[in-house]
Write a protein that binds this DNA or RNA. Sequence first.
DNA 1: CGGTAAACGAGACGGTACGTCGTGTCTTTGA
DNA 2: TCAAAGACACGACGTACCGTCTCGTTTACCG
Lengths: 210, 210, 210, 210
Amino acid sequence: MSIKRPVKSSVPAETAGRRGRPRSSAARARVLHAARALVEAQGPAAVTIEAVAARAGVSKPTIYRTWPNAPAVVMAALMESAGTPEANTHRGSALAALRRQLREIAATFASRTGRSVTQMIASADADTELSKAFRHHFILARREEGRRMLAAAVANGELRREVDLDVTLDLLYGPIFFRILVGHAPADERFCDRLLDQLVKGVAAPKAKR
Amino acid sequence: MSIKRPVKSSVPAETAGRRGRPRSSAARARVLHAARALVEAQGPAAVTIEAVAARAGVSKPTIYRTWPNAPAVVMAALMESAGTPEANTHRGSALAALRRQLREIAATFASRTGRSVTQMIASADADTELSKAFRHHFILARREEGRRMLAAAVANGELRREVDLDVTLDLLYGPIFFRILVGHAPADERFCDRLLDQLVKGVAAPKAKR
Amino acid sequence: MSIKRPVKSSVPAETAGRRGRPRSSAARARVLHAARALVEAQGPAAVTIEAVAARAGVSKPTIYRTWPNAPAVVMAALMESAGTPEANTHRGSALAALRRQLREIAATFASRTGRSVTQMIASADADTELSKAFRHHFILARREEGRRMLAAAVANGELRREVDLDVTLDLLYGPIFFRILVGHAPADERFCDRLLDQLVKGVAAPKAKR
Amino acid sequence: MSIKRPVKSSVPAETAGRRGRPRSSAARARVLHAARALVEAQGPAAVTIEAVAARAGVSKPTIYRTWPNAPAVVMAALMESAGTPEANTHRGSALAALRRQLREIAATFASRTGRSVTQMIASADADTELSKAFRHHFILARREEGRRMLAAAVANGELRREVDLDVTLDLLYGPIFFRILVGHAPADERFCDRLLDQLVKGVAAPKAKR
DNA sequence: CGGTAAACGAGACGGTACGTCGTGTCTTTGA
DNA sequence: TCAAAGACACGACGTACCGTCTCGTTTACCG
């Protein structure tokens, strides 16, 4: 009988010489993997420290040593799972690139996990460092990318010079998250396209002075 | 075992043929008042059934008899506290009325309680009757009012006929909620104004035909 | 405060001068029947007022109008179900009659319901009128019948005159209930016979003067 | 869900190879002390887990970790409080020792706590390990001690050889518990004495053949 | 024979306790 | 040294019954 004790870490490699620490990074990975699995399967509310610890084969204090509470674990898991979106290659006009980005965002956030990200942002403490990093990772980083595209479009002559970029950016991303959050209508490609077109063109009647 | 429970509805509905002792409206009012006080003071997460029961001087089963869980109580409390916003009096142009509504919404949702409403919408079950009512009460009702104003503006000649109203509505309200949710910039009057102006005018450079 | 409630009695007592609607004897019967069914099926602990009311198709206040609490209902049900044991016909000697009674008692109390009776007696309040009636109905009435038989046996010359009847009675019935209560050995016919024989004969060695 | 729980035993069993933080013997002692105080003051029905937890300054889960329900706590408390009765020193005859034991039992069980023990035995589940241990601790252990005394008395020549010891034992202890349970007469020293004397001597009239 | 008083069903009420779960902290033991 | 196992105090969960209280409806009796 092979008394093979169940290997606790998928990377047993360097367990040899050290007494304590080499498990640490393996434990971290297992925790995040477990958290990700839970949030994908049952949403962020199901990610309790106990459930994560059980699923990861890790003790609760080990988790608390790294993260202060359950939402922090969820955020870390979501951030690690979602690799940074590839930089949008500028083929065609700046506005075309923006259109591609909008579609990508809508597709990403319409998923189960995307909903979870939105929920985490809504319910997060807003002040902690991690919350800020989370918001930046999922939202503001793309918004900055968008800002660069808008600036390119201005430079292009596609957009007016005096446009307020901050307002325009929120006019682009706000409606998508609004639909995802409220759910009254789908945030699909068609919506992204119309959104962008209508924003570019404006809604005023032609002769309207204002 | 497993006796079929009567359908719970927070609205007594048919008070007509009811047998038995009627529900105490005083108890209901005390529960909602307590829940409102808690959510205002400490946010929606602090609204536990135990806390509400203690504060309202009501037993837990009395609360569970009417609402299925804590979020439902919070929603009911928030909905009852926020009376329906007054119908926007149409003085001046339809767009001016819309501007006033945007400002009112931004002011409302920038408050402590407004944040709570946003959080509840983000984390709600999305499928229950109460969640739908909640979203309608706080968001979609105003959106429908907005639709009427936009239609008036089209009739006015202020807006183009072929504008997609659904998209335009989300372009109006989405950015406000986006700022409130993400918190990267204030959703104040100035923002509302610029938002509306830029949407009306479009961002395209003058000669750009499309 | 301290309003004197009308004395509740399970027996309608003076049906004479009563105003109003008389108590429904059908309801009473249904309650007792339901309680009996429950105690037989699941023991006395399962007889909750709610369960009885549901099973009997009767409202809780109707039960509380007649009995003060659940144990009282159980006692009433058990007392009504167990009709008074038939008077022991004196065929043969007084001791033979006693033997028959012991066997009958053992058989009765070894049943599911008999266990329940024992449990009720053990856990009852000891002071209430109903508890006393219950103990009398199930135990002391038979003990008095036993006393009559013992007296007859003394008169017969079967027993010594100076025997302490009270002690002898408890020597007869105590062991049976002891076995039923503790359950370390069966209280069957053989046991009843040996019990009686040994008590009659004594256990002392023949020459032992004391 | 439904994770296999480790077997609960009120006795830590193998303290040897246990991982994790060991159970707090201080907590255990405080729980049992609180339970004992409650049962002495208000009887076994007053021993709720909540009351014990509050009085002991211990959390409910800590209690449930060790005992499955309130009666189990009561039994453990009663068993621990009542140290094993001192072995009856055989001064004088075996029957004299037996008389002393009977008196001691009667005195013990006539107390408030003794009544509680009787009630616990009557209402216990009868099948659980703890119930058996409880009955053994309070009743059957003394019965076995009694058996040894009876055997000594037989060896002495005080009792007849052919006496059925099991029946005799129940003839000794049964009546005492019967009186305590039913309460129709006191189980005092005088009763114990008469009980023993009459059992030894028998009740038959001298010439009675049977 | 028409009031009226009481019992009826239904069921909500304020309570108490249940037994479970998750939190975040703490002690052990083992590697 | 530190990680696992797991006990700990705390506190909320949602449920079951308790015994009491309205309700609207029936059903006798008594004037």
